[in-house]
Amino acid sequence: MKYSSKANLTAYAFLAPAIALLLVFSFWPVGFGSYIAFTKYNLIDAPVWVGLDNFRELLDDELFLMSLKNSAIYLIVVPVIQVLAILLAVLVNNNLPGIKYYRAAYYLPVVTTVSVIGVIWNFMYTEDGALNGILRWLHIINEPIGFLNDDRIALLAVMFVTIWRGLGWYMVLYLAGLQAISQDVYEAATLDGANAWQKFWRITVPLLMPTILLCSIMSVLAAVKAFEEVQIMTQGGPYQSTFTALYYAYEFGMKSLNFGRALAASFIVSLFCIALAWLNFRYLTPKTK
């Protein structure tokens, strides 16, 4: 046997366990799920091929269209979380006394389970909860706000929790990006006459672009796939105002056992994710020469 083919075999042998796991737990579910999206399937009977029927039903379903709209609205989380995370990272990147405790505090929600976070925020959002208490104490409101009961603001209230929960994670990523920028570059900019604002816009932001791209893609995907907060805090209510596309898929799949339609909804969400990730790559990838 030639050396090169023997070496290839060895390489494939080492890769085999990982490839097997990927096949079983990633590629197979994606392929099978995509197939199911074109069938009627209720876990008991064998799937029946129905072509594009599930997709036609989805496009005729107002609830799905509203869920899609809500998922699109959820994308507002992306710029907000990115800007806040960058600003927070710049702030905690200073060597101030006790700064490590601040970093840890901002990171704490990331390591807290989403169910606990959901329960805490449900308490915070109730009419006699902390948030209404603070707003009343500050004389901003007279009557309590039903954050999760008012269908006009419930989605925003859930989105706020997503921002609060994810901020620490993105802050840490940006902090790593900031700490990779050499201090000498800032000193050179100081000697070139750059003020703090110019250093931020002309040095920090361009040099953070690879991190911004990564965080942007991750947060876009997380926003489109928003599910856990909705499931724990509102179950899609009130009046289905917090239905997101994935929550819709969950409702139809797990509750109604209409897996064909649920996976067709997921299929559409996946296409959205791919398109948004492409847009991120297209416009945020740093140009090299």
């Binding site: 050499s182 000498d184 050179a188 361009p206 040099l207 672009m209």
Partner: peptide, 8 residues
């Protein structure tokens, strides 16, 4: 010493 050029 590190040149401190702006990489971008």
């Amino acid at each position: 010493q590190s040149y401190a050029l702006y990489p971008h």
